[in-house]
Amino acid sequence: MTIQPKLGDEGSRREKIDPLSSCLDEYALDGRIHLNGNSLGAPRHNLVPALERLVSGQWAPLQVRGWFHEGWLELPRTIGDKLGALLGAAPGQVVVAGETTSTTLFNVLVAACRLRSDRPVLLAEQESFPTDLYIAASVARLLDRDLVAVPRADLDIRLRDHGDQVAAALTSPVDFRTGERRDIGATTALCHHAGAISVWDLSHAAGVLPVDLDANDVDLAVGCGYKYLGGGPGAPAFTYVPARHQPDVDFPLAGWHGHARPFTMVPGFEPADGIDRARTGTPPVLSLAGLDHALDPLLEAGIEALYRRSRELSDYFLACLEESRPDLARQLVSPRDARRRGGHLAVRVPDAERVEHELAERGVHVDSRPPDLIRFAFAPLYVTKDHIRQVVDILTAVA
């Protein structure tokens, strides 16, 4: 048995009184340890009763009247405002239209390029999540733009040296493989100095990392609802459009719920005022209800507390790994400074896919990424330091 760093009396006391520790029992973990909240968040125990109340208490008795009597039509905005509290966005600037992250990103990237129609370049990082690159390439073909994908370290340099050619720059505050952070404020300021539109994919940051969209003067942003936000498999994505851009933003997907007067059923599209113009089709109420339910404990904790807890857990994991497996600790590809990374750590592990499966068989969920990375994510509401000691013990045995 390996010997892990002890919490000590004071550390144990702090662990017990940490208000976020009390959230553990709310989650349906099935006796397993979930260190893959950056892929799919865990559900809360009372999700099923909440959905049952919606089905039996609203949908079944009210049928179509539920749209008007139960606030279903407003869910994209009401949930958007909840998300805004975690994202540092004032009310009326975030909407959950019910689309996938891919569809949402397509909508936003086209709109960003339309805001700078005289510029030929759509800029992105080579290390972006693959879907982001696929969508960006499709948008570039559609609009006859040049997609320029540069190494992550060179994106700011490209903006400084050739930003006058860039219509929009697509990037993320957290590298999905390594967890390395990018300074949202600094990169956005470079975009604005060059006259480009900043577009941020927040999928690996929302719910675990402060992004302060308004304070950082971000132009447009998207993110998924199923990672740290915990909205469930395939939970709908969100769109952020600050008030200053809402009168001018022109989305390519002109669905009827984005119309200024959707129930007049007129043939011509007239975009709605405000954030509603980012809406498309009929809201998927059950999926939205799952995301809405997941947000409550995150909002109660607050993003700063969530971020603090995630940093503490990741630092403790590193301390345990350095004690038990210094050889693996030396294979860390994430920044060692917790302030320079998001909610997960990435370690190079030989035969990573096999190790992932071995861990799963022993009750530990992580995920591997080719060719040899294993990512360990520290969702702050359902991961504890005791979990981390157990994980390092098991990792020591199988890696």
Rank of each mutant, 00 (worst) to 15 (best):
V266I: 09
I275H: 06
E99D: 08
L202P: 00
V94M: 01
P247A: 15
L220Q: 07
V391K: 02
A399R: 05
V174A: 10
D175F: 00
P242L: 07
L62Y: 06
G258F: 04
V148W: 12
L220R: 08
L209V: 08
A346V: 08
S22Y: 12
S287Q: 11
N46R: 11
D248R: 08
S172L: 02
L123V: 02
T187E: 14
W59D: 12
I3W: 15
E353M: 07
G281H: 12
P371E: 11
T188P: 03
E353V: 02
T239H: 08
A153W: 07
C23M: 14
V218W: 01
R325D: 01
V285A: 10
A377N: 09
G31Q: 15
G80W: 04
R330M: 03
L155Y: 06
P76V: 06
F376D: 04
T282S: 09
I157K: 09
D212A: 15
V333D: 02
L306V: 07
D219L: 05
Y316G: 00
G84E: 00
T2F: 07
V398Y: 09
D337I: 14
R261I: 03
Q390A: 10
L20K: 04
A360R: 03
G343I: 02
D9C: 11
D154A: 15
D146W: 11
N216A: 10
R116L: 11
A205F: 00
T178N: 01
G230I: 00
T103R: 14
N46E: 14
R181Q: 15
A399L: 06
R119P: 01
S22V: 09
G98P: 01
H193K: 14
G92V: 12
H69S: 10
S39F: 04
I184N: 00
P242R: 07
A137W: 01
A329T: 01
A254C: 05
S21M: 06
A97M: 06
L229P: 01
R116S: 13
Y316D: 05
N107Q: 13
I17L: 15
V333C: 07
W256V: 05
Y228D: 07
L299K: 10
S102F: 04
L155T: 05
H357D: 13
V392S: 04
P120E: 13
V347F: 02
D393M: 07
A338P: 06
D9F: 12
G363S: 15
S138R: 13
E10M: 11
H34A: 13
H193A: 13
R340V: 02
G258H: 01
G8R: 10
Y316V: 02
G185F: 13
V48I: 10
H193W: 02
N36V: 02
T171N: 07
D118P: 04
G185C: 15
P252Q: 09
A111T: 11
Q246K: 11
T396Y: 10
A60Y: 11
P335Q: 12
L298W: 00
R277Q: 04
N36D: 10
S21I: 10
Y316I: 05
P120A: 15
S56A: 14
P151S: 07
L321R: 10
D219S: 06
Y228C: 08
R325N: 03
S314T: 11
R181E: 12
I79E: 04
K6V: 08
R340T: 09
